Simulated scan of single mutants.
Amino acid sequence: MNNLIDDTGERIIPEQMKITNELLIEHLARYHFSVPHVYGRVLDLATGVGYGAHVIAKKCKKQIEEIIGVDIDPEVIKYAQGQYYHPLSSYQVEDVTDTKLPEKLGQFDVILSFETIEHIENEVQFMENIFKMLKPGGTLILSTPFGEGKGIPCGSPFHVHQMTENEFMQMFEKFKTKVFYCQNGALIEPVNTAQMVHHPLGIVIAQK
């Protein structure tokens, strides 16, 4: 087995975690939640060690052509290539804000982006890349934790900021349709706009 040390306090490495670990459960829940919406050519942004891309490759092997997992960290990509090989998956080192990323990778039917945008300084370029890489009619499934808002320091030293729920919902104006969900632990359910309840984390399924 490949060995990888988590020096961030945020990286999910299933082989080094207990099955009762809440963070692991939350992250896996998002990938399993995505399974019914995944098809064709798939991109997993900030794939980390590749466990999520592997879930999709295994669970959706009859629905997808391939899944590409990208991450800026060469060490986690090396780990993914060794630990989570699947004939339908591949992993490569890329910067998700690289202006040439759409040219490098092409277009996708589905793009997954879980717990990524809060780490990114240039989120405008990040979202532009996503939109360019989605085929017409393609689907984006994206999640992020909520906090005090853009431009406001948050409790995590690894997050640029954590947007509010309203800021999150306003980010997808360019998309034809969008459905918002909230997550609390392993539970993911549609947002009830009639109830003013704070949710720790949001997920959107948006169609170009």
Rank of each mutant, 00 (worst) to 15 (best):
N2I: 05
L4I: 09
I5V: 11
D6L: 01
D7M: 15
D7F: 14
T8E: 03
T8H: 02
G9E: 04
I13F: 08
E15S: 12
Q16P: 03
K18A: 10
T20V: 09
L23H: 14
L24H: 02
I25R: 09
A29C: 02
R30Q: 05
Y31E: 07
H32Y: 14
F33Y: 05
S34H: 00
S34F: 00
V35Q: 08
P36L: 07
H37A: 10
H37I: 04
V38S: 01
V38Y: 01
G40K: 05
R41G: 03
V42M: 04
L43T: 02
L43D: 01
D44C: 05
L45Q: 11
V49Y: 10
Y51C: 01
H54I: 08
V55Y: 07
I56M: 04
A57K: 00
A57D: 00
K58V: 15
C60R: 03
K62T: 12
Q63G: 04
E65Q: 06
E66L: 09
E66R: 10
I67N: 00
V70K: 01
V70F: 04
I72E: 03
I72M: 06
D73Q: 04
P74G: 08
P74N: 11
K78A: 13
K78I: 14
Y79E: 13
A80H: 04
Q81K: 12
Y85Q: 15
P87Y: 05
P87L: 03
S90F: 12
S90G: 13
V93Y: 00
E94F: 07
D95H: 11
T97P: 05
D98A: 09
E103W: 06
L105H: 00
G106N: 09
F108M: 03
F108T: 00
F108H: 02
D109G: 10
V110R: 01
V110A: 11
V110W: 04
L112Y: 06
S113A: 11
F114K: 01
F114G: 01
F114V: 06
F114A: 02
E115T: 05
E115C: 07
E118L: 06
H119E: 06
E123I: 13
E123S: 14
V124S: 15
V124M: 12
F126H: 09
M127T: 14
N129D: 13
F131Y: 13
F131V: 09
K132R: 15
M133L: 10
M133V: 08
K135P: 11
P136W: 10
P136I: 08
G137L: 11
G138M: 07
T139N: 06
L142Q: 13
T144Q: 15
G149F: 05
G149E: 04
G151H: 12
S156Y: 08
P157M: 07
H159F: 11
V160H: 01
H161M: 07
Q162R: 05
M163I: 09
M163E: 11
M163N: 08
N166V: 14
F168T: 02
M169Q: 08
Q170E: 10
T177Y: 14
K178H: 15
Q183P: 09
N184F: 14
N184C: 15
A186G: 07
A186L: 03
I188Y: 03
V191A: 06
V191C: 06
V191L: 02
N192L: 12
N192E: 08
T193Y: 14
M196A: 15
M196Q: 15
P200M: 09
L201C: 10
I203H: 02
I203Y: 03
Q207K: 14
